[in-house]
Amino acid sequence: MSEEINKPGSDDQEIDETLESSRRDFLKKVGLVGAASVAGAAAVYSGYRFEKNKNKGDTVKVLTEDNRLVEVSKEEINDIKYQVKSFQTKGRDGIKGKKWVMVIDLSKCRNARKCVNACQSAHHLRPYEYHINTLVMQESVNTPKYFMPKPCQHCDNPPCVSVCPVDATYKRQDGIVLIDNERCIGCRFCMAACPYSARMFHWQEPMNAEEDKNKPYNVELNVPQKKGTISKCLFSADRVRENALPYCVSACPNGVFYFGDENEDSVTNGTTKETVSFSELLEKNGAYRLMAELGTKPRVYYLPPKNRIFDFTEGEKPEYKETT
């Protein structure tokens, strides 16, 4: 056996020759491809130069994030996508000079639940997961029942923010209390501390987890929602940034919600789009805040359910079932 191997065999020579010829072949091909790519690159480059010179001098005026008007040449404009970080920076800062307030007129609420639905579809929530919920309320046996939409009260002295161990939930300069799902550790201390039960927790994979997986997280919208973290009403921070009314406010068919800026002393009704004086609205209607005695200083005001133009009917209660 060993002798056979030591003998220079004809087979080996053949293989050597084939290898040699294929090597030459290969080098030839490389040379061709190389030449072609140099030529191609040259063509592309000259084309680029041509295009570049053609556009020289064309500029466009753009507004920067800090409100400066600047001029840039068109070729330097790149489409950018908002990334988590930029969402976070503006989401934590809030909108300068604003103090958002909400007024809820209980005399007009008929439990249409359009606010709830609009909110749930905007924030990708299941039918029993609430940022805003409409409750049937009754103070005592002799007082009438009424419907009460209950969003987060965006307290000025928020117990939830005080107890958060990692700065996941915070109060912004424009009065909005937000929750950062990239930071939340899921301890639920804020839920324990909130007297309004305004917060919800993702006990399971959120409804649209699959579809939203690749979206950058927007702290002003809480989308994508995240399993194992808190979610809550955001006063539609993403909408108010664009000068629009919150989802729930504009969805209401019965004129229940007013939303606006306390500094401007004006609030706008979501249904009629009528803008009224905030202080006058409160004064004329005997406004109050929920559980004012707790000292939480809510930014949501309620107008009592008096002079209702409809009869209170609870209607059929839909049954809620847990879904995956």
């Binding site: 990692v166 899921g186 301890c187 639920r188 927790f201 194992g228």
Partner: peptide
């Protein structure tokens, strides 16, 4: 009891 036990170090990184 934590919803996100993987973020336990946040207590030290971002503790308030």
């Amino acid at each position: 009891d934590m919803g996100r036990p993987d973020r336990f170090p946040y207590l030290f990184l971002y503790g308030r």
